[in-house]
Design a protein around this nucleic acid. Sequence first.
DNA 1: GAACAGTTGACAGGTTCCTGTCGAATTGAC
DNA 2: GTCAATTCGACAGGAACCTGTCAACTGTTC
Lengths: 157, 157
Amino acid sequence: MSSLQKEAAAFTDLILEVFQLNGLLLQAGDRLSAPAGLTSARWQVLGVIDHGPATVAAVARTMGLARQSVQQTADALVDDGFVAYVDNPHHQRAKLLSLTTAGRRALRKVEAAHAAWANRLGASLAPGLLAAALEGVRAARLRLEKDLTPEEGARET
Amino acid sequence: MSSLQKEAAAFTDLILEVFQLNGLLLQAGDRLSAPAGLTSARWQVLGVIDHGPATVAAVARTMGLARQSVQQTADALVDDGFVAYVDNPHHQRAKLLSLTTAGRRALRKVEAAHAAWANRLGASLAPGLLAAALEGVRAARLRLEKDLTPEEGARET
DNA sequence: GAACAGTTGACAGGTTCCTGTCGAATTGAC
DNA sequence: GTCAATTCGACAGGAACCTGTCAACTGTTC
């Protein structure tokens, strides 16, 4: 067995770990945001427009999701009063998503819970581990993006 | 800012990376398995029962998913002829999922494509990087599992 | 200013995962 | 052997993501 195949095995193992960790993170996110009446997906959208109002398409690009996925989440957030569409001076049709008072209050609440949770978990892991994991996962992501995009954009055809 | 909060920030960054990497991996998996008439989800089920026939519930536990999610995938695989239910000597009602000839052929095809792909990507990343990422992500997953399970099983209530 | 490509939101439909509930089968305690 | 707890598949419904298509708007090019 060449060392090349050994790296491939590590890559495959990493995939399985990422799948499982992803599931757990969504679960944890839902638990953190539920008290504020949110879910992982909705919380993330609120987090993006906390920096300033943005269109649905812009939020989707920031999050790396399809435009239509964010559209659904955004409409649901509007229905629940966490977010409102405000006029966009640069575009007549593409309104801006903006936090309402209720949305800001919910976001602050989740952020407080998230900070406590992240501090707790971050502190309980060996110091270098997280940094190393972050570096490796980022490298894998960048490599994968490069591998995936050339032969067609895949998303947003 | 204490070093504790710094670790928490690394943890938060890792979360975002994992979300994005997860999405890319699913995309890559679909692309690898599409030529064989499969998807990521279906390929993974076939991979589990390749070691030997198993019930839907057993496959779900192995994959860390809800039983009903695998049930749907399994039924779809049966419809497409990749898998068949065979009698279970130990359980009258819980039949065993077993690969058909077509299923085995499709699985081998995807595995070949996967091996080539993993070799290519694994070789193009710095050797230590993957190992470090794997170690860190695994530690985070284990820690998160411990954090999540105590206060209720969440899945399969 | 008219035609053009690119972007955007609306609408429709599909996949994969989830939860909750039910009856049937199995297992274990007594 | 009997009975309760557990496990299993079936069924129903929902959440979050995806793709594809369309018309309206923007900015550019001529």
